[in-house]
Simulated scan of single mutants.
Amino acid sequence: MPSSLHRGVIVPMVTPATAAGDVDLAAAACIADRLAAHGLHIFVLGTTGEAASVAASQRLPLVQTTLQAAAGRVSVYVGIGDHCVAQSIEAGRAYLALGATAVVALLPGYYALTPADMTAYFRRIHDGVGGPLMLYNIPVATHHSIPLDVIAELADLPHVIGFKDSEGTAGRWEEAYQRFGDRPNFALLMGIAAKGTAALRGGFDGVIPSGGNLMPAEWAAWWRHVEAGDWDAATALQQQFDQVNAALQRGTTLGHALAGLKTGLAAQGMCSPAMLPPLSPYSDSVQAEVCAALRELQVDLG
């Protein structure tokens, strides 16, 4: 049984942008409000939020805007993970002071790190931030896989609240549950949406799906099915989510999947399709193809 308060559907919120490359705070407020209205928790400044591309001067206003729009209805998690550890600590303290539920730390990806380096890094973040900390593994972005032995060394630290794993290695989430599933107040969150139903059925506490930005009502329904133990209904929705994700990504890169996500959100009137450099939006013709595919999959684009 889930043992953590940090559970449910936590949506990694997109960061709306203008054509000039600035954060669109008004659009961010609308997206955050819609997520909270559906009872979905929010993860701002994550991979889906193009966190590495958001100007440092615009991060705090984005977090503040998101918290104000959520208005205490749901939890709000905020990502940290600059190459400079001191900057991550400073940012983490500031986000928690604004009222963030917790900060979510991933590894910096510039230098090759040993497991000992990783452990020391997260300990420094933990001690420096001094508040609720979620550990985050996403090899596709950091080019590092955090060994589960490292997680085991960190899991008992007083401020560590859980582990988000976005690694698709076969058998990994099952081993993670075997090792950490019975720890009180330690959440296990699945960062790969396609594995959401299997991981939740296997004992995980929550899932972090980027598609929740586009389909908040459907992901809220999925969570209700999970809570009720209706795995047939949850699996049916999972199949739809998987098809939508394939339509967004078009078999290419993570960056293209994010461009596809913003394409859908733009069609819904939630934000522009603009991406933050170095990522680029889809061309007009590809956007039209993506929207046609989404409509065929019965995604409400308005």
Rank of each mutant, 00 (worst) to 15 (best):
L157T: 04
L157R: 09
L157A: 09
P158M: 08
P158W: 01
H159K: 13
V160I: 13
I161R: 07
G162C: 01
F163G: 03
K164Q: 00
D165I: 04
S166K: 00
S166V: 01
E167A: 11
G168A: 08
T169L: 15
G171R: 08
R172E: 05
R172T: 12
W173T: 04
W173L: 14
E174I: 14
E175Y: 11
E175I: 12
E175M: 14
Q178L: 02
R179M: 00
R179Q: 02
R179C: 01
G181Y: 05
G181E: 06
D182M: 14
R183C: 07
P184E: 13
P184D: 11
N185G: 06
N185A: 13
A187G: 03
L188F: 00
L189I: 07
L189S: 02
L189A: 02
L189V: 02
L189M: 00
G191V: 00
I192C: 05
A193L: 09
A193M: 10
A193Y: 07
K195S: 15
K195H: 14
G196L: 08
T197V: 09
A198E: 12
R201C: 12
G202S: 02
G203K: 05
F204Q: 04
F204T: 02
D205K: 06
V207K: 12
V207W: 02
I208V: 15
P209N: 07
P209R: 07
P209M: 11
G211W: 05
G212W: 12
M215R: 06
A217C: 09
E218F: 03
W219G: 05
W219T: 07
W219V: 03
R224L: 03
E227F: 04
E227W: 03
E227T: 11
A228F: 08
A228G: 09
G229K: 00
D230P: 06
W231I: 03
A233V: 04
T235F: 05
L237C: 09
Q238G: 10
Q239I: 12
Q239M: 11
Q239K: 10
F241I: 03
F241D: 10
F241Q: 08
D242G: 10
V244G: 08
V244T: 11
N245T: 04
N245S: 13
A246E: 07
A247L: 10
A247R: 09
L248D: 14
R250N: 13
R250I: 15
R250V: 13
G251W: 06
G251K: 04
L254W: 14
H256C: 14
H256N: 15
A257L: 14
A257Q: 15
A257V: 08
G260D: 14
